[in-house]
Design a protein around this nucleic acid. Structure first.
Lengths: 250, 250
DNA sequence: TTAAGTGAATTACATAGGTTAAGACCGCAT
DNA sequence: ATGCGGTCTTAACCTATGTAATTCACTTAA
C-alpha cells in the first residue's frame, strides 16, 4: 500500500504545516494499524456511545448526524478522507451525535493510548491536529450561516464549493471534477431542504451551467462562477498560503 | 472585587472538574488583569483581524456573527459570561467571523504568553479549557440541527432552554428567570427568521404559557414543558454529573 | 425474465415564513 | 414639553419551500 504518497491525513495537514519525514512516518504507521472496513449506511458510532478509540477515515465518506424524535434527521457535517471521526472525544462522556457511513468506508481505529503517545512526542503534529479541529469548527460555523441565511440555490452552491475544496486538499479531485456520493435525500438532510426542492435546485444549477452532476461525479466548469452564486468566501477553510509558516526543520 | 465567589469562568469549569484553590487563584488573577469595558453594539474583534490576545467575558453578552455581502447577517453563537471570545485563535491566521457586544461588556484581555503559561503549568486547567471548547463545538452542532430541522416555534423554545441552562451554569439565573438582553431583531439574526416571524412566534409561546418575556427578563414557568415543545435534549451541553470525575486532590 | 427496490424527476397543491407598511409605545436628548 | 430613534406589534399580501403522489430508469436477485 503506497500510503506514503496518498495518506489523506498527511495531505490535509501539509496544507497547514510542512511535516518532517519522521512525522509522516508516524502518521502512516498510525493509519496502517487497526484498519477496518464497513459498507454504506452503517454506523461507526452512535449517540450515547463512549468510544475508547479515535477513528481516522482513510477512504470513503461518512457523516455526523442527529435524529429528532419524530424522524426528522439533520446531517451535521461530512467526514471525508483524512478526517477524524471523533477528535478529543475522550474528554467528553458520551457522543452527542452519531456518525454513519455514506459509502463503503475504510478507517483506522487508533486506541486512546496511541493518540496520546503521538501528541505527546510530536508537538508539531499536536499543533496540526489542533489546526484541523479549529478548521472543523469554522466549517460548522459556516454551515450555521448557510442554514440560517442562504437560500436553497446559494446553499447548494456553497456546499459544493466547500466539498470540492476540501477534497482537493486531500488529493481527491481530478481537474474540476470530484466524487459526490450523495443521494438527493442525503443532500436534503444536510441542507435542511426537502428532497423535491433539492431536485428543483439541482436542475436550476444545471440550467445555469454552474454544475454538471452525472451519477456520483460532480464537475464544476467554472469554480469562480459557482462561488459567486454561493457568496462563497474560502477564508473559513484557512488554507491561506501564509499558514505554511511552521516549516519543519528538514 | 469578590471574584472568588463570582468568577463565571470558574463556575462554568467546575461543572466539569472540581478545581483546587490554587487553580482558582490562577483563573482569578487572569480575570483581573487587563480588564476592559465596552458599550453595546461594539465590535471586540472583526473578521480578518489577527488577534494576539485572548478575551474572556466577565459580564454582559456578546455574539459571534457574520455578514453576507448583501447585508444579511447571521449570529453564529452567543458569548456569555465565562466564555472565551476566541479560544485557540493563535493557531489560525485570521478571524473568519466577528465578535460584537450585545450589552455593555466587561472582559479580560489575556496576552498570548499568559495563556500559554497557564495551560503549560496547570494541566487540569488545560483539560478544562479543552472540555469547554468541545462543549462549544457541540452547541454549534445543535444550532445546525435547529436551523436545519426545527420549525420556528421549536427553534425559539430550544434557544431559550439552551440559554437558560448555560446561564444557570454560571450563576446568572434567579429561580426560573434570567436575563435575555436581545432585541427581536437579534433573535431573528440568530434563528434565521424575520423579525415579524420572531414576533409572531414569541406571541405564540406566550399564549401557550411556555414563557414570560417582559423587558429583558425571561421567565420559564415550566422548564420541562418548554423542553418538550423544543424537543430539547440537554445531553449536548455535557453537564452530566458523571463528568465530575476529575477531582482535584485538595 | 420478472419482481422488487432504490434513486431521480415532475406535477399539483398547501403552508410556513418572508416582505412591506403603518401605528403604538418608550426612553432620551434638547 | 417636544421631537426623535429604536423597538414592538399588527395587518395584508406574497413566495420559497414543503407534501403527496406518480412515473421512469436502473440495479440486483431469484
Amino acid at each position: 500500500m503506497d500510503l506514503l504518497a496518498s495518506n489523506p491525513l498527511i495531505l490535509k495537514l501539509e496544507q497547514f504545516v510542512r511535516l518532517s519525514f519522521e512525522e509522516k512516518q508516524v502518521l502512516n504507521l498510525a493509519a496502517s494499524e487497526g484498519v477496518r472496513q464497513i459498507g454504506p449506511r452503517g454506523d461507526i458510532i452512535r449517540e450515547g456511545d463512549r468510544p475508547q478509540t479515535l477513528n481516522l477515515v482513510l477512504s470513503g465518506w461518512a457523516c455526523r448526524y442527529k435524529h429528532l424524535e419524530d424522524g426528522r434527521r439533520q446531517i451535521i457535517s461530512f467526514v471525508l478522507p483524512g478526517d477524524f471521526c471523533d477528535s478529543h472525544v475522550f474528554v467528553l462522556r458520551q457522543m452527542d451525535h452519531s456518525i454513519g457511513s455514506l459509502t463503503p468506508l475504510t478507517y483506522a481505529q487508533l486506541p486512546r493510548r496511541r493518540v496520546e503517545e503521538i501528541t505527546a512526542k510530536h508537538p508539531r503534529l499536536n499543533q496540526a491536529f489542533l489546526w484541523d479541529a479549529l478548521v472543523n469548527a469554522a466549517i460548522q460555523r459556516e454551515w450555521t450561516v448557510s442554514l440560517g441565511q442562504r437560500h436553497a440555490l446559494e446553499r447548494m452552491a456553497h456546499l459544493m464549493c466547500e466539498i470540492f475544496l476540501r477534497l482537493r486538499g486531500v488529493g481527491q479531485t481530478e481537474g474540476n471534477s470530484c466524487d459526490l456520493p450523495l443521494t438527493q435525500a442525503g443532500m436534503a438532510d444536510a441542507m435542511g431542504l426537502s428532497v423535491v426542492h433539492v431536485n428543483r435546485t439541482l436542475q436550476e444549477l444545471r440550467a445555469m451551467k454552474l454544475i454538471v452532476l452525472k451519477g456520483r461525479t460532480l464537475t464544476i466548469p467554472d469554480l469562480a462562477a459557482l462561488q459567486d452564486a454561493a457568496q462563497f468566501n474560502p477564508n473559513y477553510l484557512h488554507l491561506d498560503a501564509e499558514g505554511r509558516h511552521l516549516d519543519a526543520n528538514n
